[in-house]
Design a protein around this nucleic acid. Structure first.
Length: 278
DNA sequence: AGTGAGGCCTGAAAGC
DNA sequence: TGCTTTCAGGCCTCAC
């Protein structure tokens, strides 16, 4: 579900409410996720304080004062809710962490998410975090370094954008939106992008992600901010889920072109404007 | 080594 | 109305 802007939004709101909170109790009601929640997770985190909350790719990291870090991923349908006081459990509330600053609830219908812990010093070496590529806002990501990473990729550029080992944090929505912003067709072979197209694409990725973060993320189905409210960026999508509609810069005859086109690439819905994206 | 298909899960929406 | 099918924002594994 959530892509980088949604995870960033959740991270910011968690920081506002439970930074430096003391964990009093952790209850795991279901541990069957992409990887099982370790059985000893409650005893490892109870009576610790949350010293830092940050984001790596689509993962939320909570550094505790006992040199352990929680690694949290929301998969497709995961939500983190923050409640000031205990409330009636909802369906798919799988983990409840009670702190002195509020109650944090991990709710995930499809259970594609993940909650594990690792020693803070070894975080970067964990299996899931070590294969992660550039953060989109990392200054080391530029046209040359990006082109270097995709120069041998024969797959479509849309597929390459979803590959977290190249640039992390981009999911299916923002891949379509970023390609539209750069006026590049999702079908182009990744290796065929020129240096200036790589430059445009990186700028577009940053632009789309930043605007989405500013809007509190995109809410389609499951995503909610921790206080239960919706994000706002779904109202600003240019192509995603806009099959048959004109794109924002539309200058074409809709009767002829059919407007924004939906195709399937790598099994995922992909949206683009055939007129503006080459 | 790189790629595409399939699988993990559940729920909502569409189709009949 | 109610049943069945399809699709979904992610990511891993397996067969080729």
């Amino acid at each position: 579900m959530p892509e980088l802007p949604e995870v960033e939004t959740i991270k910011n709101e968690l920081s506002k409410t439970i930074l430096n909170a003391r964990i009093k109790k952790a209850d795991v009601f279901c541990n069957r996720f992409r990887m099982p929640i370790p059985n000893d997770l409650p005893e490892r985190i109870e009576n610790t304080s949350i010293k830092n909350i940050r984001r790596i790719a689509k993962y939320i990291i909570m550094d505790l004062d006992n040199n352990l870090s929680l690694i949290w991923h929301l998969g497709m349908s995961g939500r983190i809710k923050i409640c000031p006081i205990v409330q009636k459990p909802e369906k798919h509330d799988h983990v409840v962490i009670t702190t002195d600053k509020g109650i944090v609830i991990f709710n995930d219908a499809r259970r594609f998410g993940l909650l594990i812990y690792s020693p803070t010093s070894e975080l970067k070496n964990t299996e899931i975090l070590q294969k992660i590529g550039f953060d989109p806002f990392d200054e080391k990501l530029n046209a040359a370094s990006f082109q270097q990473k995709i120069k041998n990729k024969s797959c479509a550029i849309k597929i390459a954008l979803l590959d977290q080992s190249i640039i992390n944090g981009i999911g299916n929505i923002y891949a379509s939106e970023a390609l539209y912003g750069a006026r590049i067709s999702p079908l182009r072979k990744a290796s065929s992008l020129t240096l200036s197209e790589c430059q445009k694409l990186i700028e577009s990725v940053r632009d789309v992600l930043q605007k989405a973060i500013n809007a509190g993320g995109s809410t389609l189905k499951d995503y909610r901010r921790p206080d239960g409210s919706s994000g706002d960026f779904q109202n600003k999508h240019c192509v995603y889920n806009k099959t048959g509609k004109p794109c924002p810069d539309c200058c074409c005859n809709l009767a002829q072109t059919g407007g924004i086109k939906k195709i399937v690439l790598g099994g995922r819905s992909t949206f683009y404007c055939q007129t503006h994206q080459k």
